[in-house]
Computed example of a mutant assay.
Amino acid sequence: MPPNSEDADEARPLLEATVRRFVSPHADIVRHETRRRPVQASTSDVVHHELLVRTNAHEPPRTVGLVTKRAPLAERRVLRLLGEVVPDLVPFSHTFDLSTNDVAWTCMEDLGSVTRPNSLAPIDLAVFDSEARGLARIHAAFLDRTNDLDWLPTIDRAYFERCIHEWFWRPAWERALSNDDFRAEFASAIPVVEHAAATIVDEMAALNAEEGARTLTHTDLHPSNELLRDGEVHFIDWGAAHVGTLYLDIPHLFHTPELAARYRGALERRDVLVSPSDFEERYRVAARYTALRYMWWTLDEWLSDRSASVWVRHYLDRLTS
Results as ranks from 00 to 15, higher is better:
T115D: 04
D148V: 08
V39A: 14
H165I: 02
W311A: 07
R37E: 15
L135M: 06
D148L: 12
D9P: 00
H195F: 14
D278A: 09
T100P: 03
D45F: 14
D181G: 06
W296L: 01
F254Q: 04
L120C: 07
W296A: 11
L273Y: 10
D110S: 09
N225M: 13
E6Y: 04
V274F: 13
A17Y: 06
T18S: 14
S307D: 15
V233M: 11
L216I: 09
E281F: 03
R62K: 11
P60H: 09
D148E: 15
W173C: 02
V274K: 00
R20T: 07
E268D: 14
V39I: 12
I155Y: 04
R76D: 01
D129F: 05
L51I: 04
W238E: 00
H32L: 15
G265D: 14
D220M: 00
R269W: 08
L319C: 05
R21T: 15
G231C: 15
S5D: 12
W169I: 04
V243T: 11
H252T: 02
H32V: 05
H32D: 14
I200T: 07
P13S: 02
L135T: 02
D156E: 13
A141W: 11
L149F: 02
G65P: 06
L89P: 08
E59L: 11
H234D: 08
A136D: 04
P251Y: 05
E211P: 07
D9G: 10
V39S: 09
E10A: 13
V285D: 03
S304G: 13
E109V: 05
H314G: 03
K69A: 09
L15R: 01
E33H: 13
L111I: 14
A41C: 02
A205R: 10
E232P: 02
V30C: 07
L51R: 05
L267N: 09
P191T: 05
G112P: 01
I250T: 12
V85N: 00
T106A: 15
I155N: 02
L73F: 10
S277H: 08
A141N: 07
F279R: 05
I236Y: 00
I164H: 01
S93F: 05
Y315R: 01
W169A: 08
A240K: 07
T256W: 10
N118F: 13
P38W: 08
R183G: 01
A184S: 12
P171G: 07
L292A: 05
L66K: 07
R54K: 15
P38H: 12
L79N: 05
R77H: 01
A240F: 10
L303G: 07
A57M: 12
R35M: 15
L125G: 09
E16G: 10
L253R: 11
A141D: 04
H314D: 05
E226T: 15
T256S: 08
Y159E: 05
R137K: 11
H222R: 13
V85S: 03
E131F: 13
I236A: 08
T34Y: 08
D230F: 15
G83W: 00
A286V: 01
D9T: 15
D300M: 02
